[in-house]
Amino acid sequence: MTTRRGTEERIPLLLGVLASLAIALVAIPLVGLLVRVPWSNLGSLLTSDVVLDALRLSLISSIAAAALSTVLGVPLAWLLARRRFRGRRVVRAAVTLPMVLPPVVGGAALLFALGRRGVVGEPLDAITGIVLPFSLAGVIVANTFVAMPFLVLTVEGALTNSDRGVEAAAASLGASPLRVFWKVTLPAIAPSLRAGMVLAWARALGEFGATVTFAGNLQGRTQTLPLAVFVSLENDRNAALAMSLVMVAVSFAVLLGLRDRWWNNR
């Protein structure tokens, strides 16, 4: 953006006041959290078994969910952006639904579908012996369910707005559609893809409702950081606050690293 002197540097009072309120709305709860954090014994709190197990499971499940969202979500975003087919609008609405649904509802839906008595889960168990609830795989499925829409929407937006001239040129020179997708389309939307992956990862890291409903809560197997925070709030507030601080710090560092990349990449 170019900077110009004059009226554009002045902030109208009304906008300034409202924007300050917006900042306060987000910042004050964070300050409230920071004030309560037991800084003096933070070290011992953060190296307890519960916290280390939860941190490990959170990293594994959120990264796996971001990867799975990418592998499945990019082709879906491409399909939605580049191909006209019957029911496209229904598919797009359905795919974005997990962003709007309360995660607990998503978790219950997953349980009815993929649970041990679920429509798909029961035959899956009978044929393969795979049981998703109460397992790390179940956590990853729940995380992917809520996180994938963020990737699909970001990537679809970039694909819709990207210049298709180069793709047409590559195709006219004899490149197969898959090769065009891999060598031309994907590199062109790389910044958006990266932003979509980070958003999906961040959403997965904070996932609570769908996970506890579908995958349960067991230290070392399915208890991610948000679950550990929730359970600790009941009986060990200092541990809960210490873990909350970790989540805030990790998420904030990543979002700060992204800066405003996902708005200004076109």
């Binding site: 506890v212 349960g216 809560n217 067991l218 230290q219 399915t222 359970v231």
Partner: peptide, 14 residues
Amino acid sequence: VDTDEPDARALLSK
């Protein structure tokens, strides 16, 4: 144990 549910009702429903 396979899961430590947050409250008695959540456990009952599972």
